[in-house]
Write a protein that binds this DNA or RNA. Structure first.
Lengths: 129, 129
DNA sequence: TACATATATATCCTTAAAGGATATATGTCA
DNA sequence: TGACATATATCCTTTAAGGATATATATGTA
């Protein structure tokens, strides 16, 4: 059972919730791109390091939309950092995400419970044919 | 709170779990494209009618991959129907989807619970700034 | 017969999001 | 000096979904 198919769920370009992960990280603490790559791993949706291009693309887009704002920090060691901060609009957007994610979680739960209802309990064969 | 942002979660091209919805419908009952459009609505992820093009595209792709098989049914009223049936491989793939979806549901729950942990309980303001 | 409607499948193009490669610049340390 | 870690930026490709449109068959009805 559960052989490796050519196309496994999760192998494609599935939703990885990178945008809400960035917003959530920034709600906890203002930060910058390079650090966010590490931070968002802790939130569970991105395994390993997210490609930097994705993070910077999201940050630029979020700033365009007014969800975050940024300023250069040149003091301190190493190259200058662009520090991003969540705006009130971004805070609202994060809350919209939370509601969306709760809704998705509920639908997923209904779906998988429905599956186990027709196949018998979890842990037994999933086949009825 | 929760003003309408220019880009609301769920407005873009988010994951709608159409493939597992089709597999689940076919596990319950062999069916054909036109009927599946109605059936998968009941599974919660697709509101309204899914665009027919999406359904037929998925069915063709799933058949190519050996997850479903089909045969024409010409008897009965109306145009001929191509009846799709889940294969054992498709059954395995559905189970892979179930595991993936359970994992996603757990991550989503952790994420939203983490949010409420830092903002206070659900129902109060989501702002801490 | 002619036409409208419901049923049913198929094909096509566009857009959104993610994957992933690469370039550039700065400071530290051996 | 050269290697390395830090840090940002830009670019192109791939995948999945959105959505429009074409085609064909059977039925009811004016």
């Amino acid at each position: 059972m559960n052989q490796k198919n050519t196309k496994d769920p999760g192998s494609g370009k599935r939703q990885r919730y990178i945008q809400p992960s960035i917003l959530m990280s920034l709600k906890l603490k203002s930060s910058y791109g390079y650090e966010l790559i590490q931070e968002i791993q802790k939130l569970g949706f991105v395994e390993g390091s997210a490609p930097p291009g994705m993070i910077y693309r999201h940050l630029r887009q979020l700033e365009e939309e007014g969800m975050v704002c940024s300023e250069w920090h040149t003091e301190g060691a190493g190259p200058a950092r662009r520090i991003y901060r969540l705006t009130p609009e971004g805070d609202d957007m994060l809350y919209s995400w939370i509601q969306y994610m709760e809704d998705q979680a509920r639908k997923l739960k209904d779906f998988t419970e429905g599956y186990y209802r027709i196949t018998g309990c979890q842990g037994t064969s999933h086949s009825i044919e």
